[in-house]
């Protein structure tokens, strides 16, 4: 393969040590290897508790692996996010690596529109253009206009989730992690998200996703990756 992988997970192992519960060790996976190329959407498979979310969070730099590395292609060069200093991890997250979780975690009292344009402002896009792009995306996601100036804390689960998706897709990140982005959406909205994902893939984004909904999974996955094959010895 001549093309550079967008994500290269190298011999990754994760053991949780719970010091305050008698130093219990919980092994999750070991020597895990995964490469994701631009334009690929790798869907993590395996039953609940096998470490799919742990793997995603480790790729995002949110969990610290016990050994191994995660190389993310940032500005054309692979950077090991598990060993990068905090400011570099934040820089990678700002410009390269997006994460859509199941939950919206935001500051109270900030309006929906401000939340959605924030990633653009952080990347130096002018306010006027940022607003236009945010409005286009919120319309595509069918979030009622009356909601735009309100903070999303009082929204329904599905509405919050769409704000979350808008925040993540507005930036057109080259690498995107999707942790059940369609979990609380109805069929029509799921279809819109599938369209967004496929459009981003067509533009060359690389993705790793967790989808419990088989229809969505089949619609976006370019291949499945079974995390349980790397299960840590008990």
């Amino acid at each position: 393969m001549t093309q550079e992988a967008a994500i290269r997970v190298d011999d990754l192992s994760k053991i949780f040590t719970l010091h305050n519960q008698g130093a219990t060790s919980i092994g999750v996976f070991e020597a895990l290897k995964l490469e994701v190329m631009p334009g690929e959407c790798v869907v993590l498979a395996g039953e609940s508790g096998v470490g799919k979310s742990t793997l995603m969070r480790t790729i995002y730099g949110n969990y610290l692996p016990t050994s191994g590395g995660v190389f993310v292609s940032h500005d054309g060069a692979p950077v090991d996010i598990t060993k990068a200093p905090p400011h570099q991890v934040l820089e990678i997250r700002r410009r390269t690596l997006g994460y859509v979780s199941q939950f919206l975690r935001v500051i109270p009292r900030v309006s929906t529109l401000d939340l959605v344009i924030e990633p653009l402002l952080e990347n130096g896009v002018e306010l006027e253009e940022a607003r236009e792009r945010a409005i286009t995306l919120l319309q595509a996601l069918r979030l009622p206009e009356a909601h735009w100036e309100l903070p999303p804390s009082t929204f329904s689960g599905g509405e919050q989730q769409r704000v979350n998706i808008a925040r993540s897709f507005i930036r057109e990140y080259p690498v995107l992690l999707l942790d059940e982005p369609t979990a609380s959406l109805d069929a029509a909205n799921r279809a819109i998200v599938v369209e967004l994902i496929n459009a981003a893939l067509a533009k060359g984004a690389a993705m790793v996703g967790i989808f419990h909904d088989h229809d969505v999974r089949d619609a976006v996955a370019t291949r499945l990756f079974n995390v349980s094959e790397y299960k840590a010895a008990a």
Binding site: H19, N20, R57, Y63, L64, P86
Partner: peptide
Amino acid sequence: TGLADQVLDDPQHPYTQLLVS
């Protein structure tokens, strides 16, 4: 010491684990 969300979500030191939990 480390990235804020990493320290809070995956604390390594026994004291940090106690603090977060």
